[in-house]
Each structure stands twice: as structure tokens, then as C-alpha cells.
Nucleic acid binder design. Structure first.
Lengths: 204, 204
DNA sequence: GCTGTAACCTACAGGATTGTCAATAGCGAG
DNA sequence: CTCGCTATTGACAATCCTGTAGGTTACAGC
């Protein structure tokens, strides 16, 4: 409301630093206010710069959003592949949840899909494939088609569950007449891990 | 492109009919173009009316969107409760998919959540609870807490899977290096039904 | 120091979209 | 046939947001 006495001394960042700060702010807005809340002026205000500066660094609003997506995908990929096989399913789920949920990847992905920004043909990461192959390799078994399909579907189910939990988990909790969202969520994830472990196609 | 010679004769609908036509058009736009594509002018053009007429019937853009949500929830509820226990899990999944996927409920729900329009406290339907109770009642068994929780989680998992499939199923198929989206989706749903059936807590 | 690059700013243009208003015109009721 | 209600409309107002233009300033290299 009050003008920063005369003119605030201009702060000059490196391009990389500016981009990072802007992306952080944009991501925060996305997570809280939802898709439509990523507005150049507001994001700029959060960082403490003017909105043309944002355009200077990302070219356009679309450029900003694409950079946001790219960074999220890279983060998720690194996180997932890095944390492979570092414990049982349940703990792995919990670890993945930060990137998937807290970091807003699920929301960003959902919005990208809803708005038609991301289409199936755009998916090049082969992340699930790599995860499945890593899983098979770990067991040191001969690749078995049926078993491969089984693992693909298990990963798919896990992805769907974690993705959905972030988006509509609290709603489902309410719809089930339960109250403690956090606790129900934790129990559910644990239950799912058990379900998948108990029915493992190759003992554990 | 060409003006409808002079002035098209005004077509007068009943209020209910107009509302229905408008909702249909809005829903179609939502399904194809995503959330942001629901614009008053375009929706109106689809129906063949002017956009103030849309406002006349729904008060505001928000009113239109809320009506859209309400209709979708009612449709889903009716569909789910109506189709309960009319076959095995796999066929029930397939039947539910129309309302959930084709009818755009998943997309609408996702967008409502993303944009902050729907918050957990807004959920009053108790749909999952009713589904679970219906399931228990069918078995004619004494309510068992552990079993009740098990059923709640199974329904939750099913909901998450179907919800997620609609949104990111094709993306997951690509990420898994698979090609035939439709076929993979069908197989996956079938696989999930089997998984839940085989591990049923009380025999089939 | 001097200078060039680029990060940054203010001001403005352009476009799109929601919402208002007064007037028009179908259609049922009497 | 007339009347009244309301669905419908064209024109306009208000707002919001992205993107552009041109000037300014911080900082690095020489």
C-alpha cells in the first residue's frame, strides 16, 4: 500500500538465480491458489520485481509454465530413480510423496493435462518403463512377459493412488464419513503397500 | 462466417430446457478444451443463443459452473448406487466409467479441486460411506470395524484408480513404453478387479 | 574509471471476458 | 384477441491480464 520510500534500490540477480526465484514463486501460487492463480503480476510481486522482468526471463506466460513443468518432471524423475529400492514399499511411498504431493507435481501435472498443455504424445520420459526394468533387474530374474506386465500394473496403480491422493484424498476421506484426513491418508498408503506386498508375484 | 440473413427468428425454450442445453454445451467444452475453455460466449454460441441469456439462467459464470458440478455429482451418485452389485467388480468398473470418464466427471472434479472451488468441507454426499454400508449389508454380516475399514479402503483405491485413469491413464501408458492406450486401460482395470477380488477379505 | 551487457523498471497498448441494461418478442393464460 | 410474463438480445461498461517499448541502473571486464 505504501510506496517503498522514493524508489527501492534495484536488486540485481544472476539470470539463473532470478529464474529460480520466479519459478519458486510461481509454483507456490500454483499449489495454493490453483492453476488460474499463476498470474505474472502476482508472481512478480511475490519475488519483489515487476512483471515485465518475468517476461524478460521466460519470454511469455507459457514459457514460464513450461519451465515450471520441465523442472517438476526432472525433479520427480531424479527423485524416483534415486530413491529406488531404498526400503520397503511403504517407506518408499512416503518418500515419494514429497515430490509428488508437497512439491506440487501432482497438481501441476493435473492442470497441464486438464488444460491440454500436456498430451500423451508429449510424454517421452519412459519413467514407468525404467522403474519397471529397474525392479526386474533387482530381482536378477530372466525377463518374463507376464511378470513384466504385473510390475507395470503395480507401478501404474501406485502412481494413480499417490496422484489421486494428493488431489482428492481429503475429499474421499470426507465422503467416507471419516474425519482425520492426515491419519486416514497415512493408513491408506500403508494399507496399499501391504496389499501390494502380500500379493507379490514372487514372494518378497 | 456469414450472417444469418437479417435476424434469425428467436427460438424460445422453457427455462428448464434452456438450462439443460446450456449445461450440455458447457460440459462438452469442459471435456474437450479443459477448464479454462468454458467461456460464456463460446458456450452460448454452441447452443445458438447470446451469452447474456446464459447469465440470465445461471446468474454468473460461477453459477453455471456450480450447476455443472451439482448435476455431475447427482448423476454420479445415482449411477453408482443404482449399479451396485449388478455383477462382478470388473463389469461394475466398466459401467461406472461412463459417468466417471466419458461424462467428464473426473475432469470436472479435478478442476474444481485445483481451482479451490471444492474444498473437503464442501463434501457432504457421504457417497463412499453409503457404498461401503451397502456392501456390508449385502453380505449380511455383523458390522466388523476391521472389515469396514478394509472395504472403505478398497472403495477408495477403486475411486482413485478410476479417477486417475481418466486423467493421466494415457500418459502412464506412454511412460510405460506401451502403445495401445485403450487396450492397456482395459487390461489394467480388469487386473485391478482381479487383484481386489483375489484378496477379498471374505471369500468372493 | 570507462564501457558494454543485460537485468530491471515505468507506462502504455491491445485483447479478451464477464457482467449490466434497456428493449424486443415468443408464447401461454384469460 | 389481448395481455403479461419472461426468455432473449444487442450494445455497452468495467475489469483484468498479457505483452511491448524505451529508458535506467547494476555489475563485470578491461
Amino acid at each position: 500500500m505504501s510506496k517503498p520510500s522514493a524508489s527501492a534500490p534495484r536488486k540485481r540477480r544472476s539470470a539463473a538465480e532470478a529464474r529460480r526465484e520466479i519459478l519458486d514463486a510461481a509454483q507456490a501460487r500454483l499449489e495454493r491458489g490453483g492453476p488460474e492463480a499463476v498470474r505474472l503480476q502476482e508472481v512478480a510481486a511475490d519475488v519483489g520485481i515487476s512483471h515485465p522482468t518475468v517476461l524478460h526471463h521466460f519470454g511469455s506466460r507459457d514459457g514460464l509454465l513450461e519451465a515450471l513443468s520441465r523442472r517438476a518432471v526432472e525433479g520427480l524423475t531424479e527423485d524416483l530413480l534415486g530413491k529406488l529400492r531404498t526400503g520397503d514399499l511403504s517407506t518408499m511411498f512416503e518418500r515419494v510423496e514429497h515430490t509428488f504431493g508437497d512439491a506440487g507435481f501432482a497438481r501441476l501435472l493435473a492442470w497441464n493435462v486438464l488444460s491440454g498443455r500436456t498430451r500423451p504424445d508429449d510424454v517421452k520420459d519412459q519413467l514407468i518403463k525404467r522403474l519397471a526394468e529397474s525392479e526386474l533387474a533387482h530381482d536378477g530374474q530372466v525377463p518374463d512377459d507376464a511378470q513384466y506386465r504385473e510390475i507395470l500394473f503395480r507401478i501404474r496403480l501406485s502412481a494413480l493412488a499417490l496422484f489421486g491422493e494428493v488431489l482428492i484424498g481429503p475429499l474421499l476421506t470426507r465422503s467416507a464419513g471419516q474425519s482425520d484426513e492426515v491419519e486416514v491418508h497415512r493408513e491408506f498408503v500403508h494399507w496399499l503397500a501391504s496389499l501390494l506386498s502380500d500379493t507379490a508375484p514372487h514372494g518378497h
